[in-house]
């Protein structure tokens, strides 16, 4: 570690970043074989695959930092909901395809800005992982932004789908930028950007894309929050019940 910082802050950060990728990857993978067109089946499987690969990197590092012998798998499969640190946005149900795309876009913009900043992390491992993942996430963002524009500025019906997805999800975006004392310490040490610092660029990209998509940016600034502290929505329990079933039912088995 380049700079000394309370390791529990670093662990918290790695869990948040890994859990976001894991839970969103889970949600996206649920579309496999059910999307509106074959090209989307392929693209969504690819996105989910990238996110699961990313999860392995962050949670793997989290296990090392924690130093208690936990692996990416044991962190993914053997923690209960209250120990998960993902934002509420990524556990939102898939809804119609518009909601899935909008959730992806709002997340991708943030994800892109986070990883861009993390490439300069004073922690070499974090910088290395971020550089690798950023290549994939740049593509995710390019794809989701393009679809938001085409569907927002598409037919009246596709516009309606995208606007209602945006209205539904907007209140879940604020949590991405909430900053706590651990975040401040990591920012101070040059390990990770303070979440609030990512907001201006996020705003700029989101506004530009929504403008092109002829979508109306919601004005209500209420923020649903809790995920980053382990207080989730009802949905996460079901995600975990499904995801963790085999590991829970057959403890210690090798798969």
């Amino acid at each position: 570690m380049a700079t000394s910082v309370n390791p529990s802050f670093l662990l918290e950060f790695l869990l948040r970043t890994g859990d976001n990728a894991l839970i969103l990857g889970h949600r996206v993978s649920q579309w496999c074989g059910h999307s509106p067109v074959l090209e989307e089946d392929i693209a969504l499987a690819n996105t989910a695959l990238d996110l699961i690969g990313e999860t392995q990197l962050w949670l793997g590092l989290a296990g090392e930092v924690e130093g208690k012998g936990r692996t990416a798998d044991s962190l993914a499969y053997l923690r209960d909901a209250a120990e998960f640190r993902n934002v509420l946005l990524v556990e939102r149900p898939n809804g119609d395809f518009g909601q899935t795309l909008m959730r992806q876009f709002l997340f991708d913009v943030w994800h892109f800005e986070l990883l861009t900043a993390l490439q300069e992390s004073s922690n070499a491992r974090i910088a290395e992982i971020s550089a690798k993942v950023l290549k994939e996430v740049s593509y995710h963002l390019e794809r989701s932004a393009d679809l938001i524009i085409r569907l927002g500025d598409g037919s009246a019906e596709s516009h309606r789908h995208m606007q209602s997805a945006l209205d539904d999800l907007w209140a879940y975006t604020g949590e991405l930028f909430l900053t706590d004392v651990g975040d401040d310490a990591l920012a101070e040490a040059g390990i990770a950007p303070a979440p609030a610092s990512l907001k201006p660029k996020w705003e700029a990209t989101v506004s530009r894309v929504l403008g092109e998509a002829t979508l109306r940016r919601p004005t209500d600034n209420y923020i649903h929050k809790g995920g980053k502290r382990g207080v989730h929505t009802e949905h996460l329990g079901y995600i975990l019940a499904e995801m963790q079933f085999l590991q829970r039912a057959y403890p210690g088995a090798i798969w």
Binding site: I42, L49, I52, T55, Q56, A72, L246
Partner: peptide, 30 residues
């Protein structure tokens, strides 16, 4: 053919198995 295998993606027992299965099902769509 994506459907019977897709049925287990969310329940794959490890991250590695999940990634392999996703890659496989993606191939089939391809």
């Amino acid at each position: 053919g994506q459907l019977p295998e897709g049925n287990w993606i969310t329940r794959a027992p490890t991250l590695e198995r999940k990634a392999i299965l996703l890659a496989k099902v993606q191939d089939e769509a391809g």
